[in-house]
C-alpha cells in the first residue's frame, strides 16, 4: 500500500513537471512573447529591451527554462496585472483558494448527499415513478448549461423571491465584521463563535453550490443507480441471501459497498468538471474564487495569474485522482493487496 502511494506521488511530480514545461513553451509562444504581453502594444523599443532583460529573455533558452523552474519552485510567478493588479500572482491564488474549496465542497456535498441515496432508492424501485422522475431530472441536470442554471437560480431564489443572497461570499452589512482565521468563511464563523457570520457565509454558498453541483449530482445519481442494479444481481448477493442475513446487512455490507466502487471513480472525475464549472458559476454569482479569477485573468491577459491557475488546477486534478485511487484501494482489497 505504501509503495503504491509513493509510486502515485512520483507520478504526480512527473505530471507537474511535464505541465510546467508545456506552460513554459506556451508563455514563450504568446503573441510577441511574454515581454510584449506584459509590456503591452504601446511599448517603446527601449522599454522592450529593458523588459526582455528583466525577464531574462536575452539569455539562452535552457537558462531561461531553469530560471523559470526556479521561480515555479519558489512560487514566484510575478505580479498580477489584471485580477488584483500589483499583488503577487501566488498571493492572488492563495487568498482565493479557500473560497473555491468551500464552493467545491458545497457542490460535492450537494451532489453526493443527494445523488447516492436517490440513486440507491431509484435502483431499489427500478421502473417505478420515483425511478423515472430521478432519471428525467438527472437528464435535465446534465443537459442544462451551468451558466444558465446559475442565472436561473439566481433570478428565482435571489432576485425574485429574495430568499438567498445573489452574490459574493458574505454580506458586507453584518452586525460586526467577521473575523478571518482560515479563509474558509463558514469554518471561521464556527471557530470564532460568530454564528451569524458563519450562517451568512453558508447562505451565500447555497445557490452557487447547487448550480455547480447539479451536473455531478446527475452523474452520481445515474452511476449509483446503475451500479446498485448491477450489484443486486451479483451472485454474492444471492449467497448473502442464502445465508439468511438480514436485509440491513445485505444492503449495507454486500450491496452498497460494492456499488460504491464505480461511484468513487466517477465522483473523482467530476472534480475536473467542477473546475470548469466554477469559472461560470463564480462569474454569475460574483463569487470571489479562483473561477472568477480565471475568467478575469483571461479577459485582461493576466498571464502571471493564469500560470498559477493552470498549474494549480493540474495539481488538483492529479491529487484528486490520487485520492480517488486511494479510496478505491480502501474499498477494494483486490487493488490493495496486489
Amino acid at each position: 500500500m505504501l509503495r503504491y502511494i509513493v509510486r502515485r506521488l512520483i507520478q504526480l511530480v512527473v505530471v507537474m513537471f511535464v505541465l510546467s514545461l508545456l506552460l513554459f513553451l506556451w508563455l514563450r509562444s504568446l503573441p510577441g512573447g511574454p515581454d510584449s504581453a506584459i509590456c503591452g502594444e504601446r511599448c517603446t523599443p527601449d522599454q522592450r529591451v529593458a523588459m526582455r532583460h528583466a525577464l531574462g529573455m536575452d539569455q539562452p533558452i535552457w537558462v531561461q527554462y531553469f530560471k523559470y523552474m526556479g521561480r515555479v519552485f519558489t512560487g514566484n510567478f510575478g505580479y498580477s496585472s489584471g485580477v488584483e493588479p500589483g499583488t503577487p500572482a501566488i498571493e492572488v491564488f492563495l487568498h482565493r483558494l479557500p473560497a473555491t474549496i468551500e464552493l467545491t465542497i458545497g457542490a460535492l456535498i450537494f451532489a453526493i448527499v443527494l445523488g447516492i441515496p436517490l440513486g440507491y432508492f431509484a435502483a431499489r424501485r427500478k421502473g417505478g415513478i420515483f425511478d423515472n422522475l430521478g432519471i428525467i431530472s438527472s437528464l435535465v441536470g446534465i443537459a442544462i448549461p451551468v451558466f444558465f442554471l446559475a442565472y436561473l437560480l439566481k433570478f428565482v431564489f435571489a432576485v425574485k423571491l429574495g430568499w438567498l443572497p445573489d452574490s459574493g461570499r458574505q454580506s458586507t452589512d453584518l452586525a460586526q465584521p467577521a473575523t478571518r482565521v482560515t479563509g474558509f468563511f463558514v469554518l471561521d464563523g464556527l471557530i470564532t463563535r460568530e454564528w451569524d457570520a458563519s450562517w451568512d457565509a453558508f447562505r451565500h454558498l447555497i445557490l452557487p453550490s447547487i448550480a455547480l453541483g447539479t451536473i455531478p449530482f446527475a452523474v452520481i445519481f445515474r452511476i449509483t443507480r446503475s451500479s446498485v442494479i448491477d450489484v443486486q444481481n451479483e451472485d454474492y448477493v444471492r449467497t448473502a441471501e442464502a445465508k439468511g442475513l438480514t436485509t440491513q446487512v445485505i444492503r449495507r455490507r454486500h450491496i452498497l459497498r460494492n456499488a460504491m466502487l464505480p461511484v468513487v471513480t466517477v465522483t473523482g472525475l467530476q472534480v475536473g468538471a467542477l473546475l470548469a464549472g466554477a469559472v461560470l458559476t463564480e462569474t454569475v454569482f460574483a463569487y470571489p474564487g479562483l473561477g472568477q479569477a480565471t475568467a478575469i485573468a483571461f479577459q485582461l491577459r493576466d498571464f502571471a495569474v493564469l500560470q498559477v491557475l493552470v498549474l494549480a488546477s493540474a495539481a488538483t486534478y492529479t491529487l484528486v485522482n490520487l485520492v480517488v485511487d486511494l479510496s478505491y484501494a480502501l474499498i477494494d482489497p483486490r487493488i490493495r493487496t496486489r
Binding site: 451472485d235 454474492y236 444471492r238 449467497t239 442464502a242 438480514t246 460494492n258 466502487l261
Partner: peptide, 23 residues
C-alpha cells in the same frame, strides 16, 4: 430468512462470483 443459513443452506456453482470480493 431466519431459516436460511440455519436450517437449510446452499452452495453455488461459481465460487469466485459467489463470494463477496471486497469482504
Amino acid at each position: 430468512r431466519d431459516r436460511r443459513g440455519r436450517d437449510l443452506a446452499m452452495i453455488f456453482q461459481d465460487p469466485l462470483s459467489s463470494l463477496n470480493p471486497v469482504i
